[in-house]
Design a protein around this nucleic acid. Structure first.
Lengths: 196, 196
DNA sequence: TCATGCGGAGTGAATGTTCAGTCCTCATCT
DNA sequence: AGATGAGGACTGAACATTCACTCCGCATGA
C-alpha cells in the first residue's frame, strides 16, 4: 500500500464538520476530531498541513457540494419567478436536510475564517463563485427586464439569502415547523420583496 | 473607598467587546483584554466570575442599550407601515453607527453562546425580550388587521431581521455603500415582503 | 527485508485562573 | 493638621490545564 486511504481523509473532514457544528471551534480539538474519525491524532497531519487548512477544506468541499445541488435545480426556459422559486426552495431543502452542514456553515461564515474568505473573494476576484453567479444572473436579467426592483445586487442578495437563512435557522431551533406549503409561501413573500 | 470603581468594569467590558469584534473569541485572551482596558489581568476576576460570564455580560448590556434606543423609535398613532419603517431604519442606523457592536453581536449570536442563550430563552420563557415584543405586537396587529400576510411570527421576523442584518453586514464588508435613500428603499422592499 | 501509512504518547506554547503581596484611601487619634 | 494604621481594590508572576503539532516505533504488505 503506497497511497493514503481516502476514507480516512473523508472521515476526518466529516468528524471535524460535525464537532464544529455541534460544539463550535472551541469544542473541536484535534484529539477529539481524530477520535471521532477513528484515526490517530497524527494522521490528521498526514492529510492536512494544519488545523486551519482542515477547516477551510471542510468549507470548500461543502460549498462544492452545494453548488452541484443548486446547479441541478436551475432549469432555463421557465419564467424568472419560477426559477427564483426553484432556487429558494432547493436551497432551503438543502439546509433543512443537512442541519449539521448548515450549522457548520454558520459557525464558519461569521468567524474570522469566513470574514477572511470573503475579503479574499472580493480582492482576488475569485473566479468560480458559481452558486452566487447563477443567482446573480437571475437578478441581473430580472432587473434588465424590469421585473425585479432596480436595487444594488448586494441588497437583492440580502433580501433573498438573508430571509432564507433566517428561516432555516428558525427551523433548526424549532421556532417554526416548516412544511412544503410554508416554504412555498415564504418563497412567495421573498419574491414580493424583490419583484417590481 | 470600599466600592469597586465602575470605570474599570466598563473598561473591561468595552475592551472585551472590541477585541472579540475585531479578532473573534480566539483573538481575545484575558491578558489582552486586561491590557487594553488598562487594568491587571487579575482585576477581570474581581468583576466577573470567569471569562464566560464576562462575555455574556457584554452581550446583555449591549442588548439593553439596543432595546432602549429602539423603544424610543416607536411612536404610536402612525400607520402600521410607518411604524414598521421607523423600526427598520432605526435598527439599521444603530448597526451602521456601531460597527464594532454589530460585529460582536454576530460573533456571539452564531457561537455556542448565542445558541445556548436562545435555548435558554425558549425553555425559560424569559420575560422582557422587549425589542422583539414591540415588533411582535406590530406584526400581530398587522395580521389581525389584514394588512400583513398571515404567516407564522418567526417567518415575519425572518423577513424583517434577516434582510436587515444581511444588508448591514454587506455594508460593513463594503459590498454596498448605504445611504439614506437606499436604506429607505430597502425598508420598502422588506415591507413588500410582509404586507398582504 | 525494505518501504510506508499510521498511531498516540510526548512537547512546547498559549491561555484561563489564582493568590500573595502592594499601595492607595480614609477613618481615627494625637 | 499631621501621623498612623487598617482595609481592601488591585496587580501580575506563577500555576495548572489545554491544545496543536511532532516524532519515533509499529504493523502491514511487497
Amino acid at each position: 500500500m503506497n497511497k493514503e486511504i481516502p476514507d480516512k481523509r473523508s472521515a476526518i473532514l466529516k468528524a471535524a464538520m460535525e464537532l464544529i457544528a455541534e460544539n463550535g471551534f472551541h469544542g473541536a480539538p484535534t484529539a477529539m476530531i481524530a477520535a471521532r474519525a477513528g484515526v490517530g491524532t497524527g494522521t490528521i497531519y498526514r492529510y492536512f498541513a494544519d488545523k486551519d487548512v482542515l477547516i477551510r477544506e471542510v468549507h470548500r468541499e461543502l460549498e462544492e457540494r452545494m453548488n452541484l445541488i443548486l446547479m441541478v435545480q436551475d432549469t432555463a426556459g421557465r419564467s424568472l419567478k419560477e426559477r427564483f422559486n426553484r432556487f429558494f426552495i432547493g436551497m432551503m431543502r438543502f439546509l433543512l436536510d443537512n442541519p449539521l452542514e448548515f450549522k457548520f456553515l454558520e459557525q464558519f461564515y461569521y468567524s474570522p475564517y469566513g470574514v477572511a474568505m470573503r475579503r479574499d473573494k472580493i480582492f482576488n476576484q475569485r473566479s468560480s463563485e458559481q452558486r452566487c453567479d447563477t443567482v446573480k444572473h437571475l437578478f441581473e436579467q430580472g432587473v434588465a427586464d424590469g421585473v425585479i426592483k432596480d436595487l444594488p445586487l448586494a441588497i437583492l442578495f440580502a433580501l433573498f439569502f438573508g430571509t432564507l437563512v433566517s428561516v432555516a435557522r428558525d427551523h433548526t431551533l424549532e421556532f417554526v415547523e416548516l412544511n412544503e406549503d410554508l416554504i412555498r409561501r415564504t418563497a412567495e413573500a421573498s419574491w414580493d420583496a424583490i419583484k417590481r
